[in-house]
């Protein structure tokens, strides 16, 4: 049982690392800031979730698990917020998205509601 949990946890962690790797490739290859933010933030949270779930399976139920869950909570709190702030700052600084500016923002620019 413990052995199965170990392998399952290791597999999840490796899957998380694979996701992080894919995200890093996206950050390297995507054409503009927004697509890169998209790649980084999604794979960061997803990879972290998989990886920490895996480590939780390995550690069993202990104080270590609590700390792992805390790490997960912090990443889930901070990573999306930072990505949002970054995209927001990039847009308001005048970086036009690669796909062209989109309608919601044009409406905003006219001074309408948010």
């Amino acid at each position: 049982m413990a052995d199965a949990l170990f392998w399952a946890g290791g597999g999840l962690a490796a899957a998380g690392a694979l996701l992080a790797l894919i995200g890093a490739l996206g950050v390297l290859r995507f054409p503009d800031v927004y697509t890169r933010i998209h790649a980084a933030s999604i794979t960061d949270t997803g990879g972290a979730t998989l990886m920490i779930l895996g480590l939780c399976l390995i550690s069993g139920l202990s104080l270590v698990t609590l700390k792992l869950v805390l790490v997960w909570v912090f990443i889930m709190l901070t990573s999306p917020a930072a990505a949002n702030a970054l995209a927001n700052a990039a847009y308001s600084a005048g970086h036009t998205p690669w796909i062209g500016s989109f309608r919601i923002m044009q409406d905003n620019r006219k001074g309408g509601s948010r």
Partner: peptide
């Protein structure tokens, strides 16, 4: 700076 500058999430 612009209309997008509202940092509610932050």
């Amino acid at each position: 700076g612009g209309p997008a500058d509202h940092h509610v999430v932050l």
